[in-house]
Design a protein around this nucleic acid. Structure first.
Lengths: 343, 343
DNA sequence: CTACGCTTTTGCAGCGCTGCAAAGCAAAGC
DNA sequence: GCTTTGCTTTGCAGCGCTGCAAAAGCGTAG
């Protein structure tokens, strides 16, 4: 395998200094048209390609940002990621993706271990079970933007929707439909379940706002927010003496799992049990029935996150950590409203 | 911001040469226990972290591999990616993900533009609309493994399932169910639609094998393999004078879209129309009805691809390009078999 | 006591690029 | 004609690490 073509090779052929070649290649100003052309020709003749590694080292930056998510195959994250990649690309950044499998240890390692720090100029992090302390003790030199449920300690930005309000809205929708026994699937009453707990809080607030008391036995915990979790939780609920007539699910996947159980038990959605989901993933727009859901503005979350991160990267003094709220809305579909055009 | 701690700083504090520190940090053999300890202490005291960029440059490798897929939010790809990331991580590789949006131009650029070459040691590429020529003209120095439908020209490996056989199997299943008018959704009768065309070939072969002739007007082309494509194609099929009583969909997403249309038109699946999908994504296991599908062994595809890529990376002389077939199977679910436990 | 062989440590060069500051040069001003 | 000004180009050092080969240390054999 022949040696790589370097700047110096090009410089020699073009009869200029290697620094000038660098200037041309990087499109710096103040290069004569004549010189530029000559260099260009040499570049093409030799098939020169800049060595990104060397450039990174010399510049002390990598032109990459990392996005860390728990699971890639969770539609919410993959949809979000897609938007992040697009937004980053516009600014000339590559995106390195890391999947933590929701393992708090892995998450902590990623934040704490600065050795990979130089591989990317900043990180967009969507933690699942990360404790606040790990965030606070991290290497502050790495620009960070957090997605999801977490409040900023001032050293990073946080982008998310108002989960409590959104959950309250979803629950109120069920109450206003006249449902009497409303269940919630997805609580996680332990340290790393902050996200879930906010949704439970909204669920409770909705009941309080309508002068109701939630039935505690209808609040079901699940280890994750996946289809099987929803399916299993629903099984449990249907086995109760007084099963629910409505369910607020903490993700659309949970809702899809729950609906699957309901239908296979011969129940009708929404006639027998109304279902609300969360995330507005594409599945929910094509499922049978389609799913009423909380729709966070993913596009805005992604672009805001990238924008703030790039600001942090380019800023010599770290900007104050901001709490950024993206908008959300309740989208009503068949799983609560029924089929509009009855087949 | 203070200067980074370097190997030399550690060396000075520990009273050894920087090369020795490097040896310790990298766990090289032949370091006295005494020396190792002294260095370790200095490392900890200064909070030294190796500079990955510098290491990469010195070693001429990056320890990263890239995976290029058309869409991240397509479950098939995100499920596959997840397996690839896991497999790569086991071997100490990071995964850089790039999304082409299925844009042939973007795909070509990725392959042709060697400038990013050094950012990663190899590429696993799942092309959509890439012509064979771009593959052949590429920079051969970059180790490459292709996923999906493509045949190797000997300069890279190709991992995929036997699409023709799988499609034939899916279609034969529908024929054997006694269906008379079997449609196919997802053909792409143009240069970049190789993948789709193999499925169409299998579809035809199945008919031939059973002494049937496929109805040409029931073979529907779609621009992509998404839910909306399936929904729309199904609309079209149902508007025909003689609509189909079975559909072979070229992806599970297409199947989900098609089923959505069927149900909202008041038709029953599978009683009125049986549906087979392709990919075995999780959605299809929880949808209503669940989807009969071709299940490629994604885990094996991922681990094989990573394994072959790492072999290419570490091999001084490029190994011959292999055609690697992963197994697949037909999984029969409700969309053709009906509900086993009628609700 | 010297020689030898083995393990451990070192010094140096250099990966390929860019930052910096100085040098070169042409046009403009006195 | 000589200096000033402003644009181009250059040379050099160095980013922080590792490969290489030589040097040093050390125990054992002759």
């Amino acid at each position: 395998m022949r040696r790589e073509v370097t700047l110096r090779d090009v410089a020699e052929l073009a009869g200029v200094s290697s620094r000038t070649v660098s200037n041309v290649v990087n499109g710096y100003a103040n290069v004569t048209e004549r010189t530029r052309e000559r260099v260009q020709r040499a570049v093409e003749e030799l098939g020169y390609r800049p060595n990104v590694l060397a450039r990174n080292l010399a510049q002390g930056r990598s032109g990459q940002i990392a996005v860390v998510v728990p699971y890639l195959d969770t539609p919410y994250f993959s949809e979000l990621l897609q938007s992040v990649i697009r937004a980053a690309r516009v600014s000339g950044y590559n995106v390195l993706i890391d999947q933590t499998d929701g393992d708090p240890e892995h998450e902590r390692a990623f934040i704490a271990d600065g050795s990979r720090r130089l591989l990317f100029d900043g990180v967009i992090f969507s933690p699942l079970g990360l404790d606040q302390q790990a965030l606070t003790n991290r290497d502050r030199r790495l620009p960070l933007v957090i997605l999801g449920e977490r409040s900023s300690d001032g050293s990073f930005d946080h982008v998310g929707i108002d989960d409590v309000a959104a959950s309250r809205q979803a629950t109120e929708h069920l109450i206003d439909l006249g449902r009497q026994r409303i269940a919630a699937i997805g609580d996680q009453p332990y340290a790393t379940g902050e996200a879930a707990q906010r949704r439970t809080r909204g669920f409770r607030e909705a009941h309080a706002a309508r002068g109701r008391t939630p039935r505690e036995d209808l609040i079901i915990s699940t280890p994750r927010f996946n289809r099987p979790d929803g399916a299993q939780a629903m099984e449990h609920l249907l086995d109760l003496a007084e099963p629910p007539d409505a369910v607020f699910c903490y993700s659309d996947l949970v809702a899809l799992g729950a609906i699957r159980t309901l239908l296979s038990r011969g129940l009708r959605v929404p006639e027998d049990v109304a279902v609300v989901g969360y995330d507005d993933i594409e599945d929910g727009r094509f499922s049978n029935p389609t799913i009423t859901t909380i729709s966070p503005d993913k596009e805005m979350i992604a672009t805001t996150a990238v924008e703030r991160l790039l600001l942090r990267i380019s800023s010599p003094t770290p900007p104050a950590g901001l709490e950024l709220r993206a908008p959300h809305k309740l989208i009503i579909r068949e799983s609560t409203a029924g089929r509009s055009t009855p087949g």
